[in-house]
Amino acid sequence: MTKKGKEILYRRVFVWSWALRVFHWSFALSCAVLLLTGIYIHYPPITTKWAEFKPQYLMATLRYYHFAAAYVFMAAVAVRLYLLFFGNRYERFTDFLPINRRNLRSLWQSLKFYLYLTDDHEWRMGHTVLAGTIYFLLFLAAIVMSLTGLYMLYPDVSWISKMGVALFGSVQMARFIHYILHWCFIFFVIVHLYIAIWNDFKAPEAIISGAFSGSKFMPADVKED
């Protein structure tokens, strides 16, 4: 562990491929746009007087941004799904889902760490399993967002309407699910930003800059298990 007065050597390890980083930032930006415009679509505030005063196609414009961001979002999700199976070691689902002993141990370890029950930081090159599981659930939510969104947007396209009726029954149900799931994304963004900053304080891995550069820092003498 880091202690005052003692020098520790760190090595730089490369973890996130450029594809994953492109995914992360296009996903993050499109999510931000989708959330802001989506909330307006759900409950447009009283802008009637303003819109009478100066025509500006407010709803039409914000819907347009929503749909434009939706395409970036869906492309990003597609890239991530590909990487889940064919990415580098740390990007595959086998590295961060609680599906083997090593990963279950990591899950327990991170829970203790976040509950301040231990100070032993877990040195993992990739995601911790706790984080990884949450990301995975978010990807599933992202797929449902895309399918419900597509069904609302293109109900006339044959395969989309088949999919929509089979999965959601009616457009109104798709709209309901789309709305309820948007809370998951707000929830995720709050927790995710907090956790990223918190970890940046707790351990000198430089994970935030890692989200840009792709590399993290690990104590030179620590080996990943």
Binding site: P44, I46, T47, T48, W50, A51, E52, P55, Q56, Y57, L58, M59, A60, P155, D156
Partner: peptide, 21 residues
């Protein structure tokens, strides 16, 4: 085969953001 919303005479007000409260 068509959506009420896409053939509604009030649609311009929707696009403009002018709503009945």
């Amino acid at each position: 085969g068509r959506r009420i919303h896409d053939h509604c005479e009030r649609r311009p007000h929707f696009d403009e953001g002018r709503f009945v409260e």
